[in-house]
Computed example of a mutant assay.
Amino acid sequence: MITFENVRKTYPQKGGARTVILEDLSMVFPQGRNIGILGRNGAGKSTLMRLISGAELPDQGRIRREGRISWPLGFSGGFHGSLTGRQNVRFICDIYGAEFRSVMEFVEDFAEIGTFMDMPYKTYSSGMRARVAFGACMALDFNYYLVDEVIAVGDASFQKKCKAVFAERRQRATVLLVSHSVSLLKDFCDIAGVLQDGRLVMYDDLDSAIKAHTAQNIKPRKA
């Protein structure tokens, strides 16, 4: 279970002002329910994922985590550009206490980037980075998988492979998915929330969340 208790998150602006991303958020993300997060660009969806993972800290409040939580797929901050893909995977295995050989075999089979696996990560295209990052995450056992849009990148073959692996993982773990794709949410999520103006409103059914998100998008932004 992941619990937010009165969490506030802001970012500084020029002139000393601060942009509020989350305002006094108290929320429980239950294990066993696959959760989608909707919101306009800039609403704070990716920030929310980084807070859940621990990659960022809140300004105020507390976040309680139970179980193993993945890094946010789509967030490449955990991969070192000067290390090769193979070295990055070994580093991840060391952090999570995973057996390197089996993880590496899975990543190589999944990513299909051949000899590039032994080249510096910074030389990879965005698609190659997505392949390695997704493969490394799916090779490890987590209670929560945090997915930030990465399923929607790459060619049709890669997307098909992602969805197949993702569908298997969601049968035994909880998925938190950020996406602009309504079809992806319908495929992989049970419930969803809409993030707007620092508030996250959860809905028990996807159709209500999608309706609220659609209505939000046709309203003018606040000045």
Rank of each mutant, 00 (worst) to 15 (best):
I2R: 09
V7Q: 01
V7I: 02
V7L: 04
Y11P: 12
P12L: 12
K14L: 15
G16E: 14
A17S: 15
L22C: 07
E23L: 07
D24Q: 05
M27R: 06
V28S: 00
F29D: 00
G32A: 14
G36F: 02
I37F: 04
K45G: 00
S46Q: 15
L48G: 00
M49S: 05
L51D: 00
L51A: 05
L51F: 04
L51V: 01
I52C: 03
G54Y: 12
A55W: 05
L57M: 11
L57H: 15
L57I: 09
R62L: 14
R62I: 07
E66Q: 07
E66T: 11
I69E: 05
I69G: 04
F75Q: 06
S76G: 07
H80C: 02
H80V: 01
S82N: 14
R86V: 01
Q87V: 06
V89D: 00
R90K: 11
I92H: 09
C93M: 11
D94I: 03
I95W: 04
I95H: 07
Y96F: 15
Y96K: 03
E99A: 15
F100C: 11
R101L: 03
V103L: 13
E105N: 09
E108A: 14
E108W: 03
D109M: 11
F110L: 06
A111I: 00
A111M: 06
E112P: 10
I113R: 14
M117W: 07
M117Q: 04
P120V: 08
K122D: 05
Y124I: 04
Y124H: 02
Y124A: 00
S125N: 08
S125T: 12
S126E: 02
G127E: 09
G127Y: 15
A130N: 10
A130Y: 06
A136M: 14
C137Q: 06
F142Y: 14
N143K: 13
L146P: 00
L146W: 11
E149S: 10
V150C: 15
V150Y: 13
V150D: 07
I151A: 04
I151H: 04
V153E: 07
G154L: 13
A156R: 15
F158G: 07
Q159E: 13
Q159P: 02
A164K: 15
A167V: 03
Q171P: 02
A173S: 10
L176S: 00
V178G: 03
S179E: 09
V182N: 12
V182T: 09
L185A: 06
L185P: 10
D187Y: 14
C189T: 06
C189G: 08
I191G: 05
L195I: 02
Q196M: 10
Q196A: 12
L200Y: 05
D204Q: 14
L206F: 13
A209I: 05
I210A: 10
K211I: 04
A212K: 00
H213S: 06
H213R: 10
A215W: 09
A215P: 00
N217L: 08
K219W: 03
A223L: 14
